[in-house]
Amino acid sequence: KKIKIKIKVYNPETKEVLELEIEVSEEEAEELAKKLAEELEKKGYKIEEVEI
């Protein structure tokens, strides 16, 4: 079964909002969402919402 992940991120420095969407297997979904959120935060983005 495929799971659709939508991530909306906001960069306070540039006032930019990015929306990302990807489909992955159920097993990958939670781990991938967690890794993406961590990487984006390292780059200065503030995570507003992660929906699985």
Rank of each mutant, 00 (worst) to 15 (best):
K1A: 08
K2H: 07
K2Q: 11
I3R: 14
K4S: 11
K4H: 13
K4C: 14
K4I: 10
I5S: 00
K6V: 04
K6D: 02
K6T: 04
I7G: 00
K8R: 13
K8G: 03
V9W: 08
N11A: 09
N11Q: 09
N11E: 05
N11H: 12
P12L: 11
P12M: 10
P12G: 10
E13Y: 07
T14M: 05
T14L: 05
K15R: 09
E16M: 13
E16Q: 12
E16Y: 14
V17C: 10
L18Y: 06
L18T: 05
L18P: 00
E19S: 12
L20Y: 14
E21G: 13
V24W: 10
V24S: 09
V24D: 10
V24R: 04
S25D: 14
E26V: 05
E26Y: 10
E27L: 06
E28A: 08
E28I: 14
A29P: 11
A29S: 09
A29H: 03
A29Q: 03
A29V: 11
E30D: 05
E30V: 12
E30R: 08
E30Q: 07
E31V: 10
E31K: 07
L32R: 11
L32I: 13
L32Y: 04
A33P: 03
A33I: 14
K34G: 04
K34N: 08
K34H: 07
L36G: 00
L36D: 00
A37P: 02
E38H: 08
E38K: 07
E39L: 03
E39K: 02
L40G: 00
L40T: 00
E41F: 04
E41Q: 12
E41G: 11
E41W: 04
K42D: 04
K42F: 02
K42W: 02
K43A: 05
K43Y: 14
K43E: 09
K43R: 08
K43N: 04
G44Q: 01
G44K: 01
Y45S: 13
Y45F: 14
Y45C: 15
Y45L: 14
K46Q: 14
K46S: 07
I47S: 01
I47C: 06
E49V: 11
E49D: 05
E49I: 15
E49L: 13
V50D: 01
V50T: 02
V50M: 06
V50W: 09
E51F: 11
E51M: 15
I52E: 01
I52F: 09
I52P: 01
